[in-house]
Design a protein around this nucleic acid. Sequence first.
DNA 1: ACCTGAACACCGTTCAAGT
DNA 2: ACCTGAACACCGTTCAAGT
Lengths: 176, 176
Amino acid sequence: VPVPPRNPQPRPPLTEAEILDAALVLLDARGPGAATIRRIAAAVGAAPSTVYTYFPDQAAVGRALVDRLVGEVGDAVTCDGRWERCVEALALALRSRLIAHPGAVPLLLGVAPAGPNADALGRRLIDLMTGAGMTDRYAARSLRLVTAYVLGAIALGGDLEQFAWGLRRVLRGLRT
Amino acid sequence: VPVPPRNPQPRPPLTEAEILDAALVLLDARGPGAATIRRIAAAVGAAPSTVYTYFPDQAAVGRALVDRLVGEVGDAVTCDGRWERCVEALALALRSRLIAHPGAVPLLLGVAPAGPNADALGRRLIDLMTGAGMTDRYAARSLRLVTAYVLGAIALGGDLEQFAWGLRRVLRGLRT
DNA sequence: ACCTGAACACCGTTCAAGT
DNA sequence: ACCTGAACACCGTTCAAGT
């Protein structure tokens, strides 16, 4: 007599990553504004209120998603050589990763990018610059400037060539 | 016998300006997200659907409001001297006008600034630069760079000193 | 033209209740 | 702990109808 499975495993518990995956899929497929709590919940097969077990509110989902995208940048870029080249490579990678998901763009413009991955990337850039002889203060300000340019350029749109041109000018202005 | 006023002037028709005024007051008083169609309508004493007589949708209200704020910049700044000084003054004025209404910041980050006032300000900056001997192409790219920096810096927050420091570096990078 | 009222198809968030 | 269902207080937008 085959034993019927008792405790049909009601469902493995949800995951923050699953929720972020679903949010990004919605954003990519249906544009900004599609990453609704209710739609995310439906996509993962849960009740809307379940999302609140994992995130305190909708804005937190957006922040976590942005930090995930930022995290992909650090992993993708390795770099040696002069600091200008490294910063340039990271800024180019940051832009390309972020605009790969146009639906997520309003999200990253709405939050001053924070979170573990953004912090790590920032640290890395600061180290790069102080390692090249910059003052802590100068490096911090340079990081702000480059970040502002990247975010603003994303907000403005425009192609890679324009972006790279401006980035080179920014780096030129930063040279001591 | 006093004649009772016939035709009690049912109400002077609404105005686009009145709607934008109400939206800005809401944004200033109650933060981003407060400029709801329904709240704007209530503030001007009309039904929500009346707003659609003046604007095609909510996004259009946002765009018009941003362009109004941008318009205040051009009016406020007069300038003579080297082009760097003029661009610097305009960028400083732009930032200060825009962050004077923190509730409106998400609005201007959400739209690539367009509209008559933004166009006029852009033209003015372009003329300034070509007048100083820049190529049309170089001037257009410089405008993009400065605009991107201003928008990004607003998104990032930070104080005037940090902003001015970065702006000087940007202008330095643009010097031929 | 300008405006209203009601309706439609949604939202985010909370909370008692269930396992 | 994790999840549900129902409810609350909202949204933007459309549209027939009124003046």
